[in-house]
Simulated assay, not measured.
Amino acid sequence: MLARAVDELPVGEHWRYEPKWDGFRCIAARDLRTSLSARSGGRLDGRFAELHDAVRLAIPPDTALDGEIVRWSGERLDFDALLRRNAADTRRAKRLAQEEPCHLVVFDLLREKGTDLTRRPLSYRRGRLEELFAWLVEPRLMLGWQTRDSGEAMRWYEEMAGVGVEGLIVKDERRTYRAGRRDWLKFKRRVTTEAIVGGAVTRPDDPRMLVLGRYDDAGELRIAGQTVELTREQRDEIAPRLRGAGDDHPWPSTLASSWGTRERLEYRRVEPTVVVEIQPDASITGTRWRNPVRLTRVRPDLTPGDVPLGLDLEKDSG
């Protein structure tokens, strides 16, 4: 099952709330052979051998789980570690399994000892899942948090952003499990902050999207993100403020896109003088916001020196 975004948190007696973990979605099944399957249908067994072994040794035969593969690095979720693992060959993946072990956060039980549970309501599936984890002792498999209390869910929402939790997943406990359907809801964290416009896709005089930057501690302007496609009104507002840049611009003339495609990103560099207010989520890869951000408004009252450094959300007044 999948989730669709909502702008307000639903409240009511039938709703259940879970943290939205920043990881790789995974169906883990122990059949004649144990398998870890990605959302795309590809196999993850070789890349996450420690989780494959955990499922094989700890889960009853003919049982299937739905969950999220995550990597904890200190006190924060580390999505970059998952990307390293996903790109590794078999030998390097085995080494990374020792150096950067991962966990499978399980939030649904699809099949139990040969019995298909997908036609049972979430309340029943969750009860069976909690009974399974009551005796499970495998540390690599974790029962995902869930609550009916919207107040507690909002505390998770506020307090867990600092560790990389993207928001909340909201589920109707009366619903069956319908693969491929967006019957779940996602309430994602959207905070506003500022960034510097360093490029325009494709032309400064009619920008379809903006490439955004932030200065690092050393004073170098780094690429930090990309906006979603701008509305006609946003294009008309920002285009007169953009000026094409020369070869002294610190960014390359073309970019390998990091926002959902392997194609080269055709864009034009602009003078990094315009500041905009944006809405990023909590997803970070390296020194960039992983997902395209929403443009809120142009900030002509601010200069690049007013913009936070790195990916900080607030300017340090000290």
Score class of each variant (00 low, 15 high):
Pro10Leu: 09
Arg39Tyr: 11
Asp22Arg: 01
Trp15Lys: 07
Asp66Gly: 02
Lys20Leu: 01
Ser35Leu: 11
Gly46His: 11
Gly46Met: 07
Val11His: 11
Asp45Gln: 08
Arg33Thr: 13
Ile59Leu: 03
Glu68Cys: 04
Glu68Pro: 03
Asp66Glu: 15
Asp53Glu: 15
Lys94Tyr: 05
Leu36Asn: 01
Arg76Lys: 14
Arg30Asp: 04
Ala28Pro: 09
Leu77Lys: 03
Leu57Phe: 06
Leu36Asp: 01
Asp45Ser: 14
Arg85Gln: 08
Glu13Gln: 14
Arg33His: 14
Asn86Ile: 01
Arg56Ser: 15
Phe24Asn: 05
Arg43Leu: 12
Tyr17Ile: 05
Ala88Lys: 07
Gly41Ser: 09
Val11Trp: 05
Trp72Phe: 10
Arg95His: 08
Gln98Ser: 09
Leu77Met: 13
Arg16Asp: 02
His52Thr: 14
Leu36Gln: 02
Val11Pro: 05
Asp31Met: 06
Lys20Gly: 00
Ala28Arg: 10
Asn86Thr: 06
Pro10Val: 07
Pro10Ser: 08
His52Ile: 05
Leu51Trp: 13
Trp21Pro: 00
Leu57Val: 09
Ala54Trp: 05
Ala93Gly: 08
Leu32Ile: 03
Val55Cys: 07
Ile27Leu: 15
Ala64Met: 09
Arg25Lys: 12
Lys94Leu: 13
Phe79Asn: 04
Leu36Lys: 01
Arg56Ile: 00
Leu83Phe: 04
Asp53Leu: 14
Trp72Gly: 02
Ile27Val: 15
Leu36Val: 09
Gly67Leu: 10
Ile59Lys: 01
Arg47Ser: 14
Asn86Val: 00
Arg25Asp: 07
Gln98Met: 08
Arg71Ser: 11
Glu99Ile: 00
His52Asp: 07
Ala54Gly: 06
Arg76Asn: 03
Thr63Gly: 00
Leu51Thr: 12
Ala28Met: 06
Leu96Trp: 01
Asp22His: 07
Lys20His: 06
Ile27Ser: 12
Arg56Met: 10
Glu99Pro: 00
Ala29Ile: 06
Ala81Thr: 02
Pro19Phe: 09
Arg30Phe: 04
Trp72Met: 13
Gly42Tyr: 12
Ala93Trp: 10
Ala93Leu: 08
His14Cys: 04
Pro61Trp: 10
Glu50Pro: 02
Leu77Cys: 04
Leu77Tyr: 06
Leu57Asn: 15
Asp80Pro: 00
Glu100Val: 00
Ala81Pro: 02
Val11Lys: 15
Ala81Leu: 02
Val55Trp: 14
Trp15Ile: 03
Leu51Ser: 12
Ser73Ile: 00
Leu65Val: 07
Pro10Arg: 05
Leu32His: 14
Asp31Glu: 15
Arg39Gly: 02
Gln98Lys: 14
Gly41Lys: 13
His14Phe: 12
Phe48Cys: 05
Arg33Cys: 03
Asp53Asn: 11
Asp53Arg: 15
Asp53Tyr: 11
Glu100His: 09
Asp80Ala: 13
Gly41Trp: 12
Thr34Asn: 06
Phe79Thr: 03
Gly41Arg: 13
Ala28Asp: 12
Glu68Leu: 03
Leu96Lys: 07
Asp78Ala: 05
Glu50Tyr: 11
His14Thr: 13
Arg84Glu: 14
Val70Gly: 07
Leu77Ala: 02
Ser35His: 14
Cys26Trp: 10
Phe79Pro: 03
